Amino acid sequence: MSVMDRGRRADKLVANKNSILYMDLKDIIRNHALQFLPAKSLFRFTGVCRDWKLDITTPFFAHKQSNSFHDISGFFCQSGTAPPSFISLDPNAYGVPDPPLNFLPEPVEIRTSSNGLLCCQGRDGYKAYYICNPVTRKWKKLPKPNADHGCNPAIVLIFEPSLLNFVAEYKLVCVFPSVDFDNGYEFEIYSSRDESWRVSGEIYFGNHPPVPRTGVHVNDIVYWVLDYQILVFDLAMERAQLSGSFCETGGIGALGRMDGKLCLAKPSLTGLTVKVLSNAYTNTMGMHSNVKAWETKHQISLSPPPFDSTTYNHRMMTNYILFAGGNVVLYRSGGKLHTYDLKTKETQCLGDELDRNARIVSHVNSLVEI
């Protein structure tokens, strides 16, 4: 073997020793897998070794995890004036410190959530909004809005994790009754970057108010249920319009977000149908256009079904699907709450329903920093 050959082989061995094949398993998991796990699991893994604990508890790791983990982990539920409780989809993997939200400075009502952040509203004074991460128990009190949002605001929290932003940047969008125009509704927007509220110049006129807790944000557009239509608010243009295409679906269901698109989950006698908005601009098409706004994504048979044939009522159908988003649909049946996983096609009973008017907000078990 020549000197040149020996040199080449030595270089090759040095290169291989620096590759992932020569890393310890614990280092491979730490560097390439931990960031995809939920917060509760990560807190347990801080006990594996000193290196894992140091890594998991750094702000940089929290930033990576909040950008990598987006699965629906459970639901905050609140009935009447009782404190909120948390129902986990998998208690071994997902969870928040118990009791939840007692770290906030006053009793609150849960309002909306987005990718690990939760928006709550105080019950006293001017009913301040709080943005918090129930996992880390970090929170921020927002300044007083310019407008009166009412006792049950139709508000949406918007937080899209970004690798470029180490501090969470988020917005709140609330549609509220105008005090200056009959049957008018205005929009107020909070920006964490500006740390201030601003009332948009746009006004929507209509006879039906937006339904609280139905707001969904998809691709810089916010949607609210309005009786048999959808109120659409374009954040970039700050323009509002009604989407008549909702009528194609045959009634109201639960709006959500799946695979980056607006989705609609509706119950049927045997299960549920999930549709996605394939064309958001059908309102601008010609009168005889064959373009369909909604595309059926899933046709699902459920056991137990949302309701039996003896309780079937077309108007009541709107109350059975409580949440649809990610890969999860939450529905009620026989006084109990159930979930259906669109990936595993499994149904899970979460327990007895609190009451039919309970506020339910989804949660992503994230380490996101506020």
Rank of each mutant, 00 (worst) to 15 (best):
Y228G: 01
E169R: 13
G250T: 09
V156S: 12
L367V: 06
Q78K: 09
F103S: 02
L277S: 07
R359V: 15
C77T: 15
D55T: 14
F75M: 07
S303H: 11
F61D: 08
G215T: 09
N327F: 14
R111E: 15
T339K: 12
D55N: 06
H32W: 01
S2W: 05
M4T: 10
V179Y: 06
H149I: 10
M258E: 04
L37D: 03
S192V: 04
V135W: 06
E186N: 11
G206D: 08
K17T: 01
F233I: 09
T282H: 11
N313S: 14
E106W: 05
T296W: 00
V3G: 02
Q121C: 15
S178P: 04
I300F: 08
N327M: 13
D182A: 12
L118E: 13
P107N: 05
C349H: 03
P161L: 03
A236S: 14
D90W: 04
P99M: 02
K336N: 13
E186Q: 14
A93S: 15
D234K: 13
G47I: 00
L142D: 08
M4Q: 12
V108N: 06
L164R: 14
L262M: 10
H288E: 11
E346Y: 06
Y204A: 10
H298I: 02
F166P: 00
L21Q: 05
L235D: 02
R9D: 02
H63C: 09
D148L: 09
A280E: 15
C132R: 08
Y320Q: 02
F181N: 01
L226K: 14
G326M: 09
A82N: 13
I56W: 03
L337A: 04
T282Q: 11
D308M: 04
S191W: 07
M23Y: 03
N31G: 01
L25A: 05
G286N: 13
K171V: 01
N115T: 09
F43K: 11
K141L: 10
E346A: 14
K64G: 00
W224F: 15
T311H: 12
G253E: 08
N283W: 12
K64F: 08
F36L: 05
T214L: 05
K12P: 00
S278L: 00
A39I: 07
A33Q: 01
N152T: 15
C151T: 14
V14F: 01
F307L: 14
S289A: 14
K261N: 10
T270S: 14
E369Y: 06
S192G: 04
R356L: 00
D259L: 10
N290A: 08
H314D: 08
S19I: 03
I110P: 11
I110H: 11
I360R: 12
D308K: 09
H314I: 13
C151V: 13
V276N: 12
H208Y: 14
A293G: 03
G74A: 13
I110V: 15
Y331S: 04
E188V: 07
A128G: 10
D259W: 10
A240P: 03
G251K: 08
I155T: 15
I29D: 00
K53Y: 04
I203M: 12
N31H: 05
M1W: 02
K275T: 09
P145S: 10
S41V: 12
C349E: 15
N133R: 11
T339L: 13
S243I: 01
G260D: 06
I360K: 11
L302H: 04
V218Y: 07
P83I: 02
G150F: 13
L42H: 09
S303I: 04
Y340R: 11
E295N: 07
G325V: 07
G116L: 09
